[in-house]
Design a protein around this nucleic acid. Structure first.
Lengths: 108, 108
DNA sequence: AGTATATTCAACCATATGGTTAAATGTTAT
DNA sequence: ATAACATTTAACCATATGGTTGAATATACT
């Protein structure tokens, strides 16, 4: 039946876009309003608004209303799920066997 | 400028699909031929072949030809990049501040 | 050589994605 | 009340995605 934790779909899908990764990076520094974020990119206000929707659905950020502005707030805890997913592979990429595999690739 | 490491796009995009995550999980156990993988899912041979293309482009797997069959081989080292990406947020989701944030959310 | 097996390729389809512009909504300032 | 500001919504567009079926290709078996 493939997978129980459909939540990962949204998290990884969010992270697959460079603008969204950049938004995360910036709001990890400090909370920014949507307008402030828009200034950083060469796309429309609406486009950024949509990106933030994607991130919000994935629970990677939430919105905090403040007057007529909305601040985007990182929810770093959600990234734990992605980390937990990768965890199961960590021993593999750290193993000597994997390093051998890499050598074989390069040796082709 | 958004982001230099476009490689992450392909990695995270790959991981955003449950069938592809499941393929990774299975080939992490042992190398499987495409045909063997097809049996596990209720989609066509061609669909699985495409999924493997996506994973291969992202360098998460490679194909090893063996007679008329092709075995799908995990390349776990690539996942290191995803892990390195998450790394920069780890201290944030482990911090007490983040735990406080979570409490505030739940308290709403 | 001819047949069966394993996989890819091509054409196609429906839906999703990331973008746009313009109008609508909500909030603050005058 | 009205104007300015911040954001969302709606309608639209091009391309990507994930799926299909059927023909083509490559390898192995008899």
């Amino acid at each position: 039946m493939v997978e129980y934790t459909l939540h990962l779909d949204g998290i990884f899908h969010s992270l697959a876009d460079p603008i969204r990764r950049d938004i995360l990076r910036r709001v990890a520094e400090r909370n920014l309003s949507i307008g402030e974020l828009v200034e950083k990119y060469e796309v429309s206000f609406a486009a950024i608004s949509k990106h933030i929707n994607v991130l919000e659905q994935a629970k990677l950020v939430r919105r905090r209303k403040e007057g007529r502005r909305q601040f985007v707030v990182l929810q770093p805890a959600t990234l734990k799920e992605a980390d937990a997913y990768l965890e199961q592979y960590r021993r593999m990429w750290e193993s000597r066997y994997d390093k051998l595999e890499k050598l074989l690739e390069e040796g082709e």
